[in-house]
Amino acid sequence: MKLNEAQITKTLSRFRAQVLAEDHPAVAQFRELFGQHTFFLDARGLYILELLEVPGMEAEEGEVISLADWSDTDSNKLTTHQPEPTGVVIRLKEIRH
């Protein structure tokens, strides 16, 4: 999910990370692997926000999902893994527009 500025701010208020800038060299590669998302990095690895879909209803929340972990002590190399929910849920309904 691509986030707007308000959604990024809301996410960062609940999840301590950095947003990768759109022009960061790694973003193109991440998009090839994971699709169109806003990507977050922290001391553990790479994350995105996925909408929590409820059949028949508009999504109101998203959950931070872990996609890759740092595989070296210098945080220079990521190793991907199956997407893992983190339990961090962000309420988005009020800030979708």
Rank of each mutant, 00 (worst) to 15 (best):
L33K: 11
E53Y: 13
G35C: 02
F15T: 06
E32G: 14
D74A: 04
D23E: 13
H81C: 13
D72T: 00
H81F: 09
Q36D: 14
A59K: 01
V54A: 13
E63C: 06
S71K: 04
G35N: 01
L52Y: 01
S75Y: 00
Q82L: 13
L78V: 08
I48M: 01
N76L: 15
T80D: 15
E63V: 09
F39G: 05
K77L: 11
P55G: 08
V54T: 13
F39D: 05
A28T: 12
Q82P: 10
P85D: 12
R44S: 13
G56H: 07
T38I: 02
D72M: 04
F30S: 01
L78G: 09
R44T: 13
I65C: 10
G62C: 04
T86G: 11
V64T: 02
R31C: 11
E84Y: 00
G56I: 09
D74K: 02
F30V: 06
G56K: 03
E61R: 15
S75G: 00
P83S: 02
E58V: 14
T80F: 12
P25I: 10
T79L: 04
E61I: 09
G62E: 00
A17Y: 08
P83W: 04
G45T: 05
E84V: 06
R31Q: 11
M57V: 14
A21M: 07
R91K: 12
H37K: 00
W70H: 08
H37D: 03
V19H: 00
V89I: 15
N76R: 15
K77D: 05
V27Q: 09
G62N: 03
V27A: 07
V27M: 07
Y47G: 10
S75Q: 12
V64D: 05
Y47E: 08
I90Y: 00
G87I: 10
L67M: 03
G87M: 10
L46V: 08
A26T: 10
F34K: 05
A68F: 04
R91N: 13
L78H: 01
T73N: 14
K77G: 02
N76E: 15
E50Q: 15
A17D: 09
V27E: 07
S66Y: 02
E63A: 09
L78N: 09
T86K: 04
L33W: 11
Q29I: 14
Y47F: 15
V27N: 07
H81S: 14
Q18V: 15
T80V: 14
V88L: 05
H24S: 11
R31F: 07
P25L: 12
A28H: 04
F30W: 08
T38E: 05
V88H: 03
G35S: 06
I65V: 14
E22P: 06
T73A: 14
F40V: 08
R31Y: 09
L92P: 10
E63W: 00
A21R: 06
E84N: 03
H37P: 06
L78Y: 01
V19M: 08
P85T: 08
K77V: 07
R16L: 13
D42C: 10
